[in-house]
């Protein structure tokens, strides 16, 4: 490999791209840069196999897929599976759960992370601030398995610290079986997400705050502004561009909230509020082996994600933000 590289002094090209005839020139360049080609093209092939090829699998949704048959032998059924999907009550429940948890996640993620970033920025003792930051990043690095284990212990009726504290404070009379009551699930999910990701989400906002010109704060001091006024009139407006960009990016990703927390914390008792679209796909596809129906549900999710992405993008344009794609 190194030999071929020696033969290719990659500094030379660029000179006259237009002069030689297109394809010939291109092939010549390709030969010259063959080391670079060897360093990247195998990975494009890898990318094609593992990222692009699965999209071909969407055809499953329009067939009655039977394993063991070749593609041409599969029976085509048009939109049958989609029709089934829309008649299934479970599907609507799952969609409700997916949207509800995604939006709770989105809103809480923003509001709390911005608040925490602002408060961290107001800390005067730098060492204390560092320590708080480092600790707040910790749960992000834990796996959802570990987090779920911790959450289940914290919520357990006998041992759980949550019940102990709430009973101790007299807020509830007797311990609650938190994970056994379906209607609590969204709240538990939101709290878990917050516990795990809040600190991590502040990183970008803290970076945005450091970009604010300190002269603004000095001017405000001279005008006799207090802390809250400075936060409201300087810090928050200064973070606005970053907030908008992230909000738009996240709207497009809103259904990609993951499913690990739901998968690990769900049980037969809270299933009605815990099951998301991803888990629905998993249940029908992997557990019941109905690949076609499960793929149809998966495609539906992609379609919604895409519409949200385009909506977010046009919103971005209207608000004068450039470039998402």
């Amino acid at each position: 490999m190194q030999h071929s590289a020696n033969a290719a002094p990659a500094v030379a090209p660029q000179k006259s791209p237009k002069a030689s005839s297109g394809t010939k020139h291109f092939l010549k360049m390709l030969m010259k840069q063959r080391t670079l080609v060897l360093m990247s093209v195998p990975f494009v092939i890898w990318l094609f196999i593992f990222r692009y090829l699965p999209v071909w699998g969407w055809t499953l949704a329009f067939q009655d897929y039977r394993p063991g048959r070749s593609f041409s032998e599969q029976e085509w059924v048009g939109f049958k599976h989609f029709a089934f999907l829309f008649q299934d009550d479970a599907f609507y429940r799952v969609m409700r759960n997916t949207f509800a948890m995604s939006f709770i996640n989105l809103i809480l993620g923003f509001v709390l992370a911005i608040t925490l970033a602002v408060l961290l920025n107001e800390l005067k003792n730098i060492v204390f601030k560092r320590v708080v930051q480092t600790i707040s990043y910790m749960p992000y690095f834990l796996s959802w398995v570990v987090a779920a284990s911790i959450i289940m212990v914290a919520l357990s009726p006998e041992e759980g610290i949550v019940n102990q504290v709430l009973v101790g404070l007299g807020i509830i009379d007797k311990p609650i079986l938190w994970l056994g009551e379906a209607s609590y699930f969204w709240g538990i999910f939101a709290a878990s997400e917050t516990w795990k990701n809040l600190g991590w989400n502040t990183i970008v906002y803290l970076a945005a705050i450091t970009m604010i010109d300190p002269a603004q704060y000095e001017a405000a001091d001279i005008d006799g502004a207090n802390r809250l006024q400075k936060i409201w009139h300087i810090t928050l407006p200064g973070m606005k561009p970053v907030i908008i960009v992230l909000l738009i990016l996240n709207i497009g990703q809103v259904l990609e909230t993951g499913f690990e927390a739901q998968y690990l914390l769900k049980n037969p008792a809270n299933m009605d509020f815990a099951e998301t679209l991803e888990l629905f796909v998993l249940r029908w596809g992997i557990n019941f082996g109905n690949y076609s129906f499960a793929t149809a549900a998966g495609i539906f999710k992609t379609v919604i994600s895409f519409s949200l992405l385009f909506a977010a993008n046009s919103l971005a344009k209207r608000m004068g933000q450039e470039r998402l794609f």
Partner: peptide, 26 residues
Amino acid sequence: EFVLRKFVTLAFVLTLYFNGGLIPTF
């Protein structure tokens, strides 16, 4: 100066916007 730079970059960046989903990947 890499002739395939745009092609390789685009091939990777495009994958940000879609994925085959659970069942086709499986």
